[in-house]
Amino acid sequence: MTPDDFDKLQTLLATRAGYRLARDRIHLAEHRLGPIARREGYANVEALLANLWAQPVASLAWAVIECLLNPETWFRRDRTPFNVLEKELLPALAQARADGRVRIWSAGCSTGQEAWSIAMAGKAAGAHVEVIGTDLAQRAIEKARSRIYSGFEVQRGLTAHAMLRWFEPAEDQWRVRDELAEKVRFGRSNLLDEPTDDVRFDVIFCRNVITDMEPQRRARVLDGLERRLVDDGCLFLGVDERLEGETVAFRPVNGRKGLYVKAPSSLRRAA
């Protein structure tokens, strides 16, 4: 890959997905693009990129973007957010909603472990939750929808007790049981796109998604999250993520790392 290829890759990733691709990631990018080049029938990564720059086919561009995203996730990652959801937020929200339904969005859900963990917390709290998981990466969403996880994946973050409760063996892997699966739907979506409908959520999880974004894009994503969140809803960012002037829409909740609520200035006035 030439320096010019890398510049173009940086631009592609920034404009379409909002992510910064640091220069020291050039070898990682090359390594990840290898399998894409083979799969798409190119002799090597250079040939793939040359073709992409000459004829920007949308599907190829997205395959390239997808492979550069960080897909890392695991069940009940950081644990605390799921405990706060189960013990504090869900009991309060379920009571505050006339129909008892609580709508939760796992934004940037990768292969789905966060969405399933949210549904588990809902079941544990005895709440009626509806979970939507979305991600930019089509392949990640396909895996989430398959609801099949390897022994490594299913054990990372879950006790054996939770594994037996929510999964059943599927050959040498593990499948999410129907009673949990019916609580969760997955779809592909880009957090940079403007909301085109008025679907709103009571709780949004968007953890470890915006850190590597360009500041302007981060602000745009946060604006979209704010529009998707009901006025008395909650937003979870990653436990190590801080908002620093990208938005005035949210304020942190004291003593709850990563938990945000809407700032008074962004509350929608009653019509």
Binding site: R156, G157, A160, H161
Partner: peptide, 29 residues
């Protein structure tokens, strides 16, 4: 697995496992 848990195991790890799994299991218990 259920038999081992019933016999008094706090958790159960399927082999093969790695450091991430063991660490998450130890923090869960």
């Amino acid at each position: 697995i259920a038999e081992a848990l019933a016999a008094g195991a706090d958790d159960y790890v399927m082999k093969p496992f790695d450091g991430d799994i063991l660490q998450s299991k130890l923090s869960e218990v």
